[in-house]
Amino acid sequence: QVALSRTQVCGILREELFQGDAFHQSDTHIFIIMGASGDLAKKKIYPTIWWLFRDGLLPENTFIVGYARSRLTVADIRKQSEPFFKATPEEKLKLEDFFARNSYVAGQYDDAASYQRLNSHMNALHLGSQANRLFYLALPPTVYEAVTKNIHESCMSQIGWNRIIVEKPFGRDLQSSDRLSNHISSLFREDQIYRIDHYLGKEMVQNLMVLRFANRIFGPIWNRDNIACVILTFKEPFGTEGRGGYFDEFGIIRDVMQNHLLQMLCLVAMEKPASTNSDDVRDEKVKVLKCISEVQANNVVLGQYVGNPDGEGEATKGYLDDPTVPRGSTTATFAAVVLYVENERWDGVPFILRCGKALNERKAEVRLQFHDVAGDIFHQQCKRNELVIRVQPNEAVYTKMMTKKPGMFFNPEESELDLTYGNRYKNVKLPDAYERLILDVFCGSQMHFVRSDELREAWRIFTPLLHQIELEKPKPIPYIYGSRGPTEADELMKRVGFQYEGTYKWVNPHKL
């Protein structure tokens, strides 16, 4: 086992960053958080920038500027975001240094004079007029057009580079997404736009490419001749908990499936790229999406959770019991969808996408189930092999396979070949997804960000279904809070070829 401390991990990262040409360590950078008073800024962006600063992973002359409508001070920003920093008493001095680099400007999102004030403020910072500028839009999409237009007109660096990070949702359907994309691309070049999907920053999602293309053993079996089906799962054990009003506007397909799960599907299904260059990788992902037809209604199961009468606390409440959810809402909190990649490698292999709230566990994984062994000599005792990439929690890679049961006879039983990170790298604290992705933006690497043509294809696949749901308002199937979801989803999976045995229990190697 390799035991690495946080300091050692960050030392390795620093070495990698400083050796590259793309990370300008000594240049002045300004990180501007648009929507600095909001939840995302408070819980994710400010803490992430602090962790990067604490670990010495930001360029040395980096300033952080918050911008929002609320009249706040840096002290206010500190008060609301610091509880999420997880700072230790030993880091007190470092924390003071961090907040000394912070400033805040209040202004409207659609007022040109406010942006001119913001620009004057940035120019007044040390070497601010020639600094590289990175704008993070932690804002609702309704203000994107006004904000990007004003940034472009008043706040661009004339000497350094300018980059803009856009948070999902990128529209509600193909038409609104196209409108937003066309607007942003009329102001910024594609190499300046970073559409963030934080799932692409997760260690195991990034590991998929290495697993596939750096190991000879997987190449020959990664196709329709050997793989019976692919299941991509995202499960949350909690409901909307008072935030249903926002969720109800989008629903589970827009929230998770059309982005996170579809991105994971691309990494499983794509061909080997010409290189690890950002556009070479994204070219292959677009090719996969172009091979997927629009979702067919007979390959869809929609569910909505109801309270568990035997549960406790939140578990007793259904989705419609959330006071922020519109009365009688038919918005799905669970969806199972089957897609097919219609190309030579994957023809006929079902890709089953499942996601839901208020389920029995927290889990995100990719599961490849292989065909049955031909010419069975073990009297149907063999179960199908599976390769599982567990994204969260407890990152893991393992192969479910058959071995001989101890004893006199040739009785096979299920076991696993474990390729888990935790076994080799004991207690290594890896940077989280937002840390990686923000560092990628500083480096100018777009590999783990969504390109406009990729986004367009993703919406093309799901828009007809979303429009049909909005028009017909089908009643989702009720499922109990804390269950596996509607049984109809299991029946759909069985119908397209997935075999669920229920006889195997994964042993978490992190707890051995």
Rank of each mutant, 00 (worst) to 15 (best):
K475E: 09
S293G: 07
V366W: 03
G313I: 09
K383R: 09
N343H: 09
L267A: 14
L262S: 05
Q446C: 05
Y398H: 15
A336F: 05
Y421H: 15
Y425C: 12
G356I: 01
T403M: 06
K404H: 15
T276N: 06
V341D: 01
L430H: 13
L466E: 06
G482S: 09
H510W: 11
K357C: 08
V441P: 07
K505D: 14
E416G: 12
A332W: 01
N427K: 14
P464H: 07
H467Y: 11
P486K: 02
V507G: 11
T420Q: 09
P326A: 09
S293A: 06
G328A: 04
K429Q: 12
D283Q: 06
L466A: 07
I480S: 09
C291M: 11
M401V: 12
K357Q: 12
M401Y: 15
D347A: 04
G303L: 00
F442E: 01
H448S: 14
V397W: 12
D279A: 13
N411R: 12
L262H: 00
G328Y: 12
S452Q: 03
N299D: 12
H510E: 15
H260T: 11
C266D: 00
Y434E: 15
L368S: 00
E457S: 04
M270Y: 00
M264D: 03
I438P: 00
D490Q: 12
V338A: 11
K287W: 03
G307N: 08
T330P: 12
E472H: 09
Y434G: 14
Q263Y: 14
Y421C: 15
Q392H: 07
D376H: 06
D440P: 02
K494N: 14
E294R: 06
Q258N: 14
E413W: 06
C443F: 05
E413R: 13
E312W: 12
I389F: 14
L430Q: 14
R367D: 02
P393W: 01
E271P: 01
V428C: 11
E501T: 05
V300T: 11
E294F: 11
T333P: 00
D280L: 05
W506V: 14
V286D: 04
I469K: 07
G303A: 06
I477Q: 10
G444C: 04
A297W: 11
P273C: 02
I377Q: 03
E488L: 09
L437Q: 15
F409I: 12
A489E: 10
H260N: 15
E314M: 10
L267R: 03
P393V: 01
L419M: 15
G444M: 03
I477M: 08
L417T: 13
T503R: 13
V373W: 15
T331M: 06
L265F: 07
M270C: 10
V286Y: 15
A336H: 06
P406D: 14
K400C: 15
R456L: 10
P478S: 09
M264V: 14
T463G: 15
Q369G: 02
H260R: 15
M447W: 12
T503E: 10
F449W: 15
L267V: 12
E314S: 08
P323S: 09
N508Q: 12
A274N: 12
Y421N: 14
Y500V: 14
E395C: 13
C291D: 12
V268R: 02
V325N: 05
F378M: 06
Q304V: 04
A433L: 15
A332M: 03
E312M: 08
T324M: 12
R436N: 10
L289W: 01
L419R: 03
L262M: 12
L262P: 02
E284Y: 04
M408T: 14
Q263P: 12
M447I: 09
S329V: 03
A396P: 10
S329K: 02
S445G: 10
R451I: 00
G311Q: 13
I377R: 03
H467Q: 12
E470A: 09
K429R: 05
A315N: 10
V338C: 10
G444E: 04
E454N: 04
R436H: 14
E454P: 01
L465S: 04
L320M: 11
N360Q: 04
I377E: 04
S293D: 05
L455G: 02
C355K: 02
G328T: 07
Q296N: 08
K272T: 09
R384G: 05
P350W: 00
L302C: 07
S329M: 01
D321C: 08
W506K: 15
V288M: 07
L465V: 12
R367Q: 13
Y319R: 00
E395L: 08
M257Q: 06
Y305L: 00
P326I: 06
C443D: 15
L262C: 11
R436L: 11
C355Q: 04
R282A: 08
E454I: 03
H510N: 11
L267K: 04
E284N: 03
M447L: 15
K494C: 14
